[in-house]
Write a protein that binds this DNA or RNA. Structure first.
Length: 495
RNA sequence: GGGUCGGUAGCUCAAUCGGUAGAGCAGUGGCCUUUUAAGCCAUUGGUUCCGGGUUCGAGUCCCGGCCGGCCUACCA
């Protein structure tokens, strides 16, 4: 971890350079003694780095004067002239500083700047011998001092722990990380644009809930002193968004954080970002069209392509209409026998054992089957696939398929070997809903939400609903390998 | 939670069989007016994650702990 020295007391003229924090602090002291405090300076920017770079067309050698500001990330000092690179929110730009143009004293001060300092630079654009567009500085000013050194310039920062705990350092020196988080922001922006354009109302529902339902996961619990009662952090958005369908907001969506008190892994962070959308007078088939259009439009607009390269294997092709497959057909194909769903439990266990899958013998038949799906099938679904006709036991909130009592009107969208988005024809029969809830209430992670059932009894229009894990979407859209690379500040053990 | 690998200078990494802890970058002092990981000369900097143990001697071996990576488990 980082070395936390206490601030060194007084600057020492006999500094030997071993303690970079102390050296920089003493530079700051000297500046203050000479009457300038960089922490109280500012700078008027006329352009960002990339705007400035666009002002010098190929056929010209000299461009207009610009004024930019940013953090120094490269410094090449020479006797009477120097090059430096600064980085701002859009990228890097080089500047050239000459002693004979800014003056002898100014140049002496300039050479005391450190990597990491924020400066402003003003001057005309020109092209160097090697063709790089560069600002010839007429004036510069230190606008904020950096007292700690930057990570190494060539390898950047590679220590995972430091990347997560000091994300700002990662963002300063690792361009791919910067780009990934910018892409995440664009993706979320495009998701909102998509729903706004379809006349959905964006809403916010409670994160603190007395009953956290809508999914089967352990919640984080906390206590509210004013009311002296326990609350949970939400584990899903579903039940409150459906209350809004009851209330007449018949197209709603929310993008928000949910919290699940489960394990950490490459694909799980205890707080993550969920999109849920509900549309009245449609069903899971309507949600299929919506989900496909959503992801295609977001990829096209945020990333400019529907072909997602992967580090290994074929690229993911998001174009066209996506494949559909029935859950039962996938299972039968995977186990290689047509009568799987008629088999007694013992035979199922025997079969899974022969396939090399570990299954808890206490599980019920549908759970064994779902283990087969999760352990054998899911990771093979790389290209976008809507898995439909899922066993009813797996989801209590969806409508039962009319001509097959054993399944529900649901799809699970799998991409990149992961479940990305489930969608249902939402259950709006309060009696069937209560019955389905009661069956699950015995389970440790399930609580009965009577208030939600009361709302259903007032009537909820027929509707399709969809949920999408944004972090997982970002993982495959940005070729990240770990959910932590898509969350700016992932959950870590306190240091 | 279990398994496994790792933690050495500000950063990226070395250190043979257990035998004086090193390099590059960064820093410091010089030289250098078009550099591109600038170059050249000189140079500072270490609680080897923490605590025990074995040993004449431990970065290295043993035990315990802390933090992290990966795998796995839990997770509709």
């Amino acid at each position: 971890m980082s070395q936390e020295q206490p601030p060194t007391p007084a600057p020492d003229s006999s500094l030997d350079g071993s303690d970079q924090f102390a050296v920089r602090q003493s530079k700051l002291e000297r500046l203050r003694e000479s009457g300038s405090d960089p922490f109280r300076s500012n700078w008027d920017q006329s352009h960002t780095s990339s705007e400035a770079l666009s002002l010098l067309p190929e056929d010209l050698e000299e461009g207009p004067e610009v004024s930019v500001a940013g953090r120094i990330v490269a410094l090449r000092l020479m006797g009477k002239a120097s090059f430096l690179k600064i980085i701002d929110r859009e990228g890097k730009i080089q500047s050239y500083v000459r002693k004979d143009e800014i003056g002898e004293d100014e140049y002496a001060d300039f050479k005391k700047l450190d990597l990491g300092d924020f400066i402003g630079v003003r001057g005309p654009l020109f092209r160097t011998k090697t063709g790089e567009i560069t600002i010839r500085a007429k004036e510069y000013r230190l606008v904020s001092k950096a007292l700690r050194p930057l990570p190494e310039k060539w390898h950047g920062l590679t220590d995972n722990e430091q990347i997560y705990r000091q994300r700002y350092l990662d963002l300063i020196v690792n361009e791919d990380s910067r780009d990934r988080f910018k892409a995440r922001s664009r993706i979320i922006r495009e998701i909102r644009e998509f729903f706004w354009a379809r006349d959905f109302l964006e809403v916010e529902t409670p994160m603190l809930q007395s009953v956290s339902g809508g999914a089967a996961a352990r919640p984080f619990r906390t206590h509210f002193n004013a009311l002296d009662c326990d609350f949970s952090m939400r584990i899903a958005l579903e039940l409150h968004l459906k209350r809004l369908l009851v209330g007449g907001f018949d197209r709603v969506f929310e993008v928000g954080r949910v919290f699940r008190n489960e394990g950490l892994s490459r694909r799980h962070n205890p707080e993550f970002t969920m999109l849920e959308a509900y549309q009245a007078y449609t069903d899971y088939r309507g949600m299929m069209e919506l989900t496909q259009s959503l992801i295609q439009q977001v990829a096209e607009r945020a990333l400019g392509t529907l072909q997602m390269e992967r580090t290994e294997g074929d690229a993911i092709d998001l174009s066209g209409d996506w494949k559909e497959a029935k859950y039962k057909d996938l299972i039968i194909e995977a186990v290689g026998q047509d009568d799987w769903f008629e088999l007694p439990k013992a035979a199922m266990l025997e079969k899974t054992k022969s396939m090399g899958i570990e299954v808890d013998p206490e599980l019920e038949e549908f759970e064994i089957t779902n283990d087969v799906f999760e352990k054998v099938i899911e990771h093979t679904l790389i290209q976008p696939t809507f898995v439909t006709h899922i066993p009813r036991e797996l989801c209590p909130l969806a409508k039962i398929t009319q001509d097959d009592e054993s399944t529900i009107d649901v799809f699970e969208l799998c991409i990149n070997g992961q479940e990305i988005a489930p969608a249902y024809s939402e259950q709006n029969d309060p009696f069937v809903q209560r019955e389905a809830f009661m069956k699950q209430v015995g389970e440790e992670t399930q609580e009965l939400d009577d208030d939600f059932l009361l709302a259903l009894e007032h009537g909820m229009p027929p509707a399709g609903g969809m949920g999408l894990g944004i972090d997982r979407l970002v993982i495959f859209l940005t070729k990240a390998s770990n959910i932590r690379d898509t969350i700016l500040f992932p959950t870590l053990r306190p240091s």
